[in-house]
Amino acid sequence: MSGTLNNATIRTGRSFDLGKMNLRQLWIAYLTYPTILLYFALVIASVTAATWFFAGWGPTLVSIVAVILVYPLAWYLLHRYVLHGRTLYKMKWTASLWKRIHFDHHQDPHLLDVLFGAPVTTLPTIGAITLPIGYLIGGWGAAATAFGTGVAITCIYEFFHCIQHLNYKPRSAWIQRMKARHVLHHFHDEDGNFGITSFVVDRIFGSYYQDAKARPRSPTVFNLGYDVKEADHYPWVMDLTGSPPRDRPDGARPEAKLMRDNTRTAA
Rank of each mutant, 00 (worst) to 15 (best):
Val151Arg: 03
Trp140Met: 11
Ser15Tyr: 15
Asn167His: 12
Lys179Leu: 02
Tyr71Asn: 14
Trp27Met: 14
Ser63Met: 08
Val114Trp: 15
Val62Ser: 06
Ala252Glu: 07
His79Ala: 10
Thr60Asp: 04
Pro132Cys: 10
Val65Ala: 15
Val228Phe: 00
Gly134Gln: 12
Tyr208Cys: 09
Trp93Lys: 08
Arg80Val: 09
Ala41Ser: 14
Phe199Cys: 04
Asn193Gln: 03
Glu230Pro: 00
Phe147His: 06
Arg177Pro: 00
Ala180His: 01
Pro216His: 11
Asp113Lys: 12
Val67Cys: 03
Met1Asp: 10
Ser172Gly: 00
Thr35Gly: 02
Thr265Pro: 00
Trp52Ser: 12
Arg203Glu: 15
Thr265Lys: 03
Leu83Gly: 04
Leu37Phe: 13
Trp27Gly: 02
Leu38Phe: 07
Asn6Asp: 15
Arg171Trp: 09
Ser46Gln: 05
Ala45Ile: 14
Ala214Ser: 14
Thr241His: 08
Thr121Ile: 12
Tyr157Leu: 07
Thr130Pro: 04
Val120Ile: 15
Thr122Arg: 12
Ala45Tyr: 02
Gly139Thr: 03
Asn167Ile: 02
Tyr208Leu: 13
Asn6Gln: 09
Thr87Tyr: 15
Val70Arg: 09
Ala152Ser: 06
Pro119Trp: 05
Ala146Leu: 13
Pro216Asn: 09
Leu166Asp: 06
Ala214Tyr: 12
Thr51Tyr: 07
Pro72Cys: 14
Lys229Thr: 13
Tyr209Asp: 07
Pro170Tyr: 03
Leu5Val: 12
Ala231Leu: 05
Asn7Cys: 02
Thr145Asp: 02
Phe159Ala: 10
His84Gly: 06
Ser15His: 07
Tyr234Gln: 02
Lys213Asn: 10
Tyr81Ala: 13
Asp239Asn: 13
Ala55Tyr: 11
Leu224Glu: 05
Pro235Gly: 08
Val67Pro: 10
Trp98Ile: 08
His105Met: 03
Trp140Lys: 01
Leu115Arg: 04
Asp202Cys: 05
Thr197Ser: 08
His185Arg: 04
Thr130Glu: 12
Ala50Gly: 14
His102Val: 10
Gln164Phe: 10
Leu184Thr: 05
Ser46Tyr: 10
Trp57Val: 14
Tyr208Lys: 04
Ala142Ile: 09
Asn167Thr: 00
Gln164Tyr: 13
Arg217Asp: 05
Ala152Gln: 01
Phe40Leu: 05
Leu224Pro: 00
Tyr33Gln: 15
Arg80Pro: 02
Val70Trp: 09
Val65Tyr: 03
Lys257His: 01
Phe40Gly: 08
Trp75Arg: 11
Pro34Glu: 14
Gly150Glu: 06
Arg100Ser: 14
Lys179Glu: 01
Ala29Arg: 03
Met91Ile: 15
Asp227Lys: 00
Phe116Pro: 00
Ala146Cys: 11
Thr125Ile: 08
Tyr168Ala: 02
Thr94Asp: 06
Ile64Trp: 07
Gln210Thr: 06
Ala55Ile: 01
Thr94Phe: 12
Gly139Lys: 08
Leu136Lys: 06
Asn167Met: 00
